[in-house]
């Protein structure tokens, strides 16, 4: 094990995959400038800066992916994906299907989001549910350095378009990363902490918050299980349902706004398939239906905190007694 930041874990993943497969290339806004180590090793053909034009960055990736390359693109901040929606949703997500399976789109689109840099809602907007709702795409949002590395490597090797969201608040967080080849399969959640009284389902930056809440609850005699989804789509339904059946109580936690968010999908999944096991209603602890603000205290208030999560759990446990 080596302790590195999420940023460095991603850099390792990119370099290893570019070394492994000559078809992998990376381009986007400032990619060759910011990732000078990749430029030095792989050259300006495979590591490219682009104009600040998300539509053509994404479209170029989609066209290249369909015809033999395996592009990774950096679109900087998630709200900028609005400029790339046509290329990602209408082309990458649909043209395999509409052509009767003639094309595949092995590409990864990276974008940052989430509270932490006080940049306001045109740079910080958790839009992962939009892409989970679009057919033909995969959506990944890791919570720790090891998963960032292992999931990014798997995303590059996947033959489908993958949206890879980087939670800004995690970018310079250190974490232990296994030495040697590290692959984390897409579509597999992880039990970040086992427990038998309640299941906290989360992903990205709110996973460590859930772990803190679990610590606080343990002191009160409540054993919370924390599930890190890691991949939003395809969702690891089996792991979520198995845990829900075991604990009988589920709280879904995410920073993205509540309405039609990932939490709604998880709650519906549990209600449809594990209703008989539930001892209390499924609860959601999420960001509000508001644009994320810049002001530091407001931005922090947007994100589900330890107290809100712990209180939601206590309310569920009280319902039983």
């Amino acid at each position: 094990m080596t302790t590195i930041t999420v940023y460095d874990a991603m850099a390792q993943a990119l370099a290893e995959e570019m070394r492994r497969d000559a078809r992998v290339l990376m381009f986007g806004e400032g990619v060759a400038t910011k990732r000078a180590e990749l430029l030095a090793e792989f050259g300006s053909t495979r590591v490219r800066n682009t104009p600040l034009a998300e539509g053509i960055i994404a479209g170029t990736a989609v066209g290249a992916a369909a015809t033999g390359l395996r592009p990774v693109i950096d679109l900087l901040f998630a709200p900028f994906l609005c400029y790339a929606m046509d290329e990602l949703v209408n082309s990458a997500g649909k043209l395999r299907y509409l052509s009767g399976g003639q094309f595949e789109f092995p590409l990864v689109a990276i974008a940052m989001t989430g509270a932490g840099w006080a940049v306001g809602s045109q740079h910080n907007h958790n839009v992962e549910a939009w892409f989970a709702h679009a057919p033909g795409l995969k959506v990944v949002m890791p919570s720790n350095a090891a998963d960032f590395k292992g999931l990014l490597k798997s995303a590059v090797r996947d033959d489908n378009p993958v949206l890879f969201f980087v939670d800004i608040g995690l970018l310079y967080q250190p974490g232990e990363v296994p030495d040697g080849e590290t692959l984390v399969p897409l579509g597999q959640a992880a039990i970040a902490r086992p427990g038998q009284d309640v299941t906290l389902v989360s992903y990205a930056k709110t996973v460590p918050v859930c772990l803190q809440a679990a610590d606080a609850l343990a002191a009160e005699g409540i054993a919370a299980e924390v599930i890190d989804l890691r991949t939003i789509k395809p969702l690891d339904e089996a792991m979520v349902l198995a845990s829900a059946r075991r604990t009988g109580r589920v709280v879904v936690v995410h920073e993205a706004s509540r309405t039609c968010g990932v939490g709604a999908e998880v709650a519906a999944l549990v209600a449809e398939h594990a209703f008989d096991s539930l001892k209390a209603p499924v609860r959601r602890v999420t960001g509000p239906d508001a644009p994320p603000p810049a002001s530091y205290p407001l931005e922090q208030a947007f994100v589900p905190g330890v107290d809100a999560i712990a209180e939601a759990v206590r309310a569920l446990v009280r319902k039983l007694h």
Binding site: T60, G63, A66, T67, D86, S91
Partner: peptide
């Protein structure tokens, strides 16, 4: 939007 990638 796609032609640039195909040409690349």
């Amino acid at each position: 939007s796609l032609a640039t990638g195909v040409a690349l």
